[in-house]
């Protein structure tokens, strides 16, 4: 059922997109081409002409974008604009949704992401994901973080596993809070702690890229600030793509910002440029709060 509800919500999102599209036919002509700086020289993730369809409904229209090493790219836009859908393409989480088709070229370090021979298991180990709602497994804190290394067989000894768990919790800034209760269930933590636990869980398998799908939308401002700090620290080691609803957050954590509108990528630029001097009128309308 949960697959179905998710499917349904994705559908409604796409349907909303279409509805909005009817209202703003005038705009759609203008967003044929992405303005700004979507491409960079050394790209970690390279996407070209990506189209995503849910059944008959097209949710993403020909999006091209590069994400470089050790940078944080924020994706913003009104709800239903396809930013989450786009993010979920990068580690093929869209595969779990029935009727979802992805076209276009997507590559990680030059290796294709989609393709008949590509194995999603090692791919997802390289491109980790943090979800909107904290989703710790109903297991102990230790087991939550150890889950990834265990299934992938990353640790050869128990001591190694302990070390990975401790390291990951350290990096997620959670170690000091939970070191005395590693065997307590992860679901007993506060919302912010749960989300950091999920980040620790994601980095325990040493990914190269971390995708974050509105990681703070379910959290209070203090927990949000904590996560934002963490994202800034993580940038040293990982490439991060973050979808966010909050423009302030995008401004705080990212180096580059991509603005999505009704399944089109309207503008990509340095974060500062986007928020101070947007090139596209739609972007400007959005950041000045005329809709969204």
């Amino acid at each position: 059922m949960s697959t179905m509800t998710l499917d349904a919500s994705a559908r409604t999102e796409a349907a909303q997109a279409e509805l909005l599209g009817v209202e703003s036919v005038a705009h759609s002509a203008e967003v044929r081409k992405t303005v700004g700086r979507p491409f960079i020289e050394i790209a970690k993730l390279r996407m070209r002409d990506v189209n995503v369809c849910y059944g008959e409904i097209q949710a993403i229209h020909s999006v091209s974008l590069d994400i470089g090493c050790n940078e944080v790219v924020a994706m913003i836009g009104p709800s239903g604009c396809g930013k989450s859908t786009f993010l979920r393409c990068l580690n093929r989480m869209n595969d779990t949704i029935e009727g979802c088709r992805v076209e276009g070229e997507l590559s990680l370090d030059g290796e294709p992401i989609y393709g008949p021979k590509v194995d999603v298991v090692p791919l997802r180990a390289r491109v980790g994901m943090v979800f909107q709602k904290p989703n710790p497994f109903p297991k102990s804190i230790y087991e939550n973080v150890a889950y990834g290394p265990k299934i992938h067989g990353i640790a050869s000894r128990r001591a190694e596993l302990d070390e990975i768990v401790e390291n990951s919790l350290h990096r997620a800034g959670l170690w000091n809070e939970v070191k005395d209760r590693l065997n307590k269930p992860g679901t007993g933590l506060s919302g912010g702690q749960q989300q950091r636990l999920c980040i620790a869980r994601a980095i325990a398998v040493s990914p190269e890229v971390i995708l974050m799908d509105e990681p703070c939308s379910a959290l209070d401002p203090i927990a949000t600030a904590r996560i934002e700090e963490l994202i800034d620290e993580l940038r040293a080691n990982y490439t991060i793509a973050i979808v966010t609803h909050s423009m302030q957050q995008a401004a705080r954590v990212s180096q580059r910002t991509a603005y999505f509108h009704l399944g089109h990528l309207v503008e990509v630029n340095d974060t500062e440029t986007v928020f101070t001097n947007p090139e596209h009128e739609l972007t400007e309308a959005y950041i000045t709060g005329r809709f969204g």
């Binding site: 298991v121 992938h152 067989g153 990353i154 050869s156 040493s206």
Partner: peptide, 9 residues
Amino acid sequence: VRERIAKRL
């Protein structure tokens, strides 16, 4: 890590 993952695939 990549190597260890690949071994068990």
